[in-house]
Amino acid sequence: MADPNAEEIEELDPAELPPMRTREASFRCADNSVVYVSFYTNDTQVGVATEQDAIQTILPNEALAAADEATEGDAEEPAEEGGTPRYSGEGYTLVGNSDASSIQFARPGGSLQTCNS
């Protein structure tokens, strides 16, 4: 039996899968606190938590978010590719690559501090 929606389905754009976790790590910061970080594919986002096994706060990549806004509103050109990714949201900021042994991290109301794995 033929699918009655076959033509509509063929015209749809392919689905984009959600990003996958590529690395999970804990980092000890300069103030002796610990941050637990999950890095996702293509540096699209990171998840951060200040307690082990806590629900993570997802921080989008600032450059990708700016590029998405620029394509929607054609306001300004996206940031240059390359360099160290910067993620921020809900007062948190994280600067670092998924394969790095250290990152910079700021909690809400705090400033960036170096954190080592």
Rank of each mutant, 00 (worst) to 15 (best):
E72T: 15
Q113F: 05
E69I: 14
S111L: 07
A49I: 07
A100E: 02
T22N: 04
Q113P: 05
T50V: 12
A54T: 07
G83F: 10
L12M: 14
S102A: 14
T71W: 01
I9R: 13
N61S: 02
F27G: 11
V34D: 12
T114G: 04
E77N: 13
D99M: 11
G89I: 09
A106S: 11
D68M: 14
V37N: 05
V95C: 05
E77T: 13
Q52V: 11
Y40A: 02
E69T: 13
A49P: 04
P18M: 08
A54F: 03
T71P: 00
Y92G: 02
E16N: 08
G83W: 08
G73A: 15
Q104K: 14
G47C: 09
A25F: 11
V48D: 04
L64D: 09
R21H: 03
F105D: 02
E11R: 09
P108W: 03
P18T: 06
N61H: 10
L64R: 11
L94G: 00
V95D: 00
G110I: 01
A106G: 04
A25S: 10
S101A: 15
F27M: 11
D68K: 15
Q56L: 06
A54K: 05
A49T: 01
A65V: 05
R21F: 04
L12K: 00
G82P: 09
S98C: 02
F105M: 01
P18H: 09
E62M: 15
G109I: 04
E24W: 09
Q56E: 14
P19V: 06
N42E: 14
E77A: 13
T22L: 09
L12G: 00
G109V: 02
E81T: 15
G82C: 07
N42F: 08
T50F: 03
E11P: 00
M20D: 15
E16I: 13
A79E: 11
P18G: 10
I58K: 04
A67T: 08
L94V: 05
A66K: 13
E16L: 14
